[in-house]
Design a binder for these strands. Structure first.
Lengths: 339, 339
DNA sequence: ATAATTAGAGTAAACGTTTACTAAGGGAAG
DNA sequence: CTTCCCTTAGTAAACGTTTACTCTAATTAT
């Protein structure tokens, strides 16, 4: 009766194989202390009963859950999926499971999720794009759960991170435009005080201009947010104000594609009359027309490295070292030398 | 010493508050059997020690994990994120966590993940776009873990599902083109024998043609897969073979956008010289130029409903009823009446 | 031949909860 | 004044593992 209703436990297996639970456990875990013969007996019983380990019980005992929590904001739909794929693939290879947490577009649910993850005894956490200044980094640090940040940093706490050098990458993107002869370059930025995608990208842009002695024109710099709609908005502002510019550096691909779309609407030919370079190399960059020249963050690989770093830190007990990932300029069809 | 190294347990709280663990547990769970006074004492202790429940232990005892597993194929990056958002939001509201499983683009990891999820004692599973004919539905059924399918069905087992009526939706999409005066309509399909996005969508297309007595021209029907590249490919075939057609119905947005991109390349004006309608209403549809007319699946809502259905089935022990979601034609700018 | 080691296995105590059962004390009902 | 019940609480047995100990018998070393 009981056997029909409940799943078989290690006890049932032991009984059926005529050994003790300890022996079964040892076999299950590949430890030593049994003969080849008993091993076969036990394995036979396991198969016959279709026994499956209860990992919950195991986790309780070994005080490890082989689970990592991932915190992501909801916005920027095209950005995170690649990252997530990288995270999940490497996690699975290392026999970790990942529980996903959508913190909402304003990060409202962050503390909520942090509590849940702690209660669920996750072995580690990966936190992406966490905004600075709201004290979340302290909360994370205080949990004393091994963590790694992706595409963000903590100002006050030593939490290892993985990101590209946004300043240099933006510098390179701007330089790419300059080297194509452009001098009047507009900047479509996202949230101005975003630690990662805001400030450093603007700085990189400014630095490139400075180095080439191109005067900065404030009216060519528009800050909105990071969505397609914001790109539309920024571009329209530029156009309404009758600014003259031959190129645009957009702080993310969605913005760039938004600008691209307005350009088409207005009959501005890209890249003949206007060059545009984006940032992120999301799949929108490949799918838009003309395909977008952009700076690529190796999102999938960043996910992979994040997990590797995290697992290392879980298993050694030491914090790992932060990693700066290489960026790359992907030349497609939206940048053309100025004639 | 111990107190410093290890997290406080319910035992420590009980000791500190001078009560038994049973009382603490009852307070934690909002049961009855204690005075207001003890409750306050205990809550004070909880706060002072910064006690957090160990959910793993709890799960072991109550034999429920409040966890649901989600199985997704890797392909179709833009499709699943919305679904996932819906799933996660509702799950969180109901205090469930979701563990994400990427089964790979060929579903290679399905059995692997199914085992992991069972061992982790998930309360339920949501499986998306599972292909038929490979026997995975049997495996799922055999786990006897409550499950719901999204955008797929099982031929042989009674597993509740959530999907739109692909046949009717495709019929409607094709009809939309017909009503705009088109008679030479090409079909760019994905995998031909996909139970959901393959066969029914083709059938819907054929049915609409039949009903309006438009002869089917096999050479206008191209089957590839579901990616942007496939859209490019399919469109190029059509062009190479010098087919004449005034409209395209694409089985997914990525295909449609691929076709759109080729059209631009070749100087074919959309929608003036060619109308295109897609399927899915992914955000690519909004971001491409011109913005894509497409049939919308309410992805986010489907995720929501899937979780609701699953939770209901977990908590009542009965299988829920399958749900057919409404589709909607989103008119943007790629379809125009034939002059 | 005896002592020391070892291989193969079992016993039972954890891990941190929940919960069925038990018990004491106080108030209401008879 | 007893009897009964309710409230407030405690005791201890699970849940399904892992693992430190213990034990026996066989093998090896002396």
């Amino acid at each position: 009766m009981k056997a029909i209703i409940n799943k078989p436990t290690i006890k049932d297996v032991a009984q059926k194989a005529g050994v003790s639970v300890a022996t079964v456990s040892r076999i299950l875990n590949g430890l030593e202390g049994y003969s080849e013969e008993t091993k076969e007996k036990v394995n036979k019983a396991i198969i016959e009963m279709n026994y499956q380990r209860n990992e919950i019980a195991r986790h309780l005992k070994i005080k490890r859950t082989h689970t990592i929590g991932v915190l992501l904001p909801t916005r920027g739909t095209s950005f995170y999926i690649e990252l997530l794929n990288g995270i999940q693939d490497v996690a699975h290879k290392n026999k970790y499971s990942v529980v996903n947490c959508n913190t909402g577009d304003q990060w409202q649910l962050t503390n909520d999720y942090l509590r849940v993850l702690a209660e669920r005894q996750v072995d580690g956490m990966i936190i992406c794009s966490l905004p600075a200044g709201l004290g979340y980094d302290k909360t994370i640090y205080d949990t004393s759960i091994p963590s790694v940040l992706v595409s963000t940093v903590s100002d006050h706490f030593q939490i290892p991170y993985i990101k590209v050098d946004d300043f240099r990458a933006s510098y390179a993107a701007t330089l790419h435009l300059i080297q194509n002869g452009h001098r009047q370059i507009a900047f479509l930025g996202g949230d101005k005080d975003d630690r990662i995608a805001g400030k450093p990208r603007l700085q990189g842009y400014l630095e490139a201009l400075r180095e080439y002695q191109i005067p900065v024109k404030e009216s060519l710099i528009k800050h909105t947010h990071f969505s397609f709609k914001d790109g539309v908005l920024g571009m329209k502002q530029l156009l309404n104000e009758k600014e003259t510019f031959t190129a645009i550096f957009a702080a993310c691909d969605d913005i760039a594609v938004g600008a691209l779309s307005v350009a088409y609407h207005e009959g501005i030919k890209v890249p003949d009359e206007l060059s545009i370079i984006g940032y992120d190399n999301t799949n929108a960059a490949e799918m838009c027309y003309p395909p977008l020249t952009t700076v690529a963050q190796p999102l999938y690989q960043m996910g992979e490295r994040a997990v590797e770093l995290l697992i290392q830190s879980i298993e050694t007990g030491k914090k790992g070292e932060s990693i700066i990932m290489p960026y790359e300029i992907i030349e497609r069809k939206t940048v053309k030398p100025l004639v």
